[in-house]
């Protein structure tokens, strides 16, 4: 049932809307079809980013792909939580590290999901930041990949999607833009800093190829 709803929303509605009205071009998204589990990392400037990535997912396993969202921003009301869970398939995490045993550890939450065989979409920048500018990645991504080195990490570059719905505006406008899926990243060293650096570089590479 959940699969059907998500397929209708993303693969049917958002994909055609993005292609025809927004003018979004999908590059290399078919490479995901063969993969069973992956961590997608993308640059983040707009709420449209999640819609663009989710609409590129193969309908076969779209219900097993979870965007990771900040609970302080999206989990305000019960309605919000409900919508995020069922319409976006998102998992809400706190943005701060766990300081005591009572707090939920964000890395732990994602880690559990990955152990269940689910895929996740991550924005390692942590927030939407300045329009069109990629800020430095947070270290959380390093901890996560260090824990799960066997899972494929795929960089995604969102080119110009921020223009369709910039931070602080509420109308979605059409602009020609691109979503580019890269090849999986080979991490040579599993040091936290190296992982963070390598993932940033892989997205930079996608930017230059354009």
């Amino acid at each position: 049932m959940k699969k059907l709803i998500l397929t209708l929303i993303y693969t049917v509605f958002w994909r055609s809307f993005n292609k025809i009205i927004i003018g979004l071009k999908y590059h290399n998204h078919k490479s995901l079809r063969k993969k069973k589990q992956f961590i997608l990392i993308a640059n983040h400037n707009s709420h449209m980013d999640t819609m663009a990535i989710m609409s590129a997912m193969p309908s076969k396993y779209i219900h097993r792909v979870h965007p990771i969202a900040a609970s302080d921003f999206f989990g305000g009301t019960k309605l919000n939580k409900f919508l995020m869970k069922y319409l976006v398939n998102a998992i809400l995490i706190p943005r701060k590290k766990a300081n005591s045993d009572k707090d939920i550890d964000p890395i732990e939450v994602i880690s559990k999901l990955l152990n269940k065989g689910r895929s996740v979409i991550l924005y390692p920048e942590g927030s939407r930041g300045t329009p069109g500018v990629m800020s430095n990645f947070k270290k959380g991504i390093g901890y996560l990949i260090q824990k799960h080195p066997e899972i494929d990490v795929i960089p995604v570059y969102l080119d110009g999607i921020y223009k369709t719905l910039p931070k602080g505006t509420s109308i979605i406008l059409p602009y020609n833009c691109n979503i580019i899926f890269g090849k999986k990243i080979d991490f040579h060293s599993l040091e936290i800093d190296d992982i963070v650096l390598k993932s940033e570089e892989s997205i930079q590479k996608l930017i230059k190829r354009e």
Binding site: G23, G160, K163, P166, G168, T169, I171, L173, P174, Y175, N176, C177
Partner: peptide, 23 residues
């Protein structure tokens, strides 16, 4: 016409406050 306008507006550097008027 719509695709043509979209093409023009993608390349134009307009202000954020123009968005409503673009609509």
């Amino acid at each position: 016409s719509f695709f043509t306008l979209r093409e023009i507006y993608t390349l134009l550097k307009l202000r954020d406050s123009d968005r409503t008027v673009l609509l």
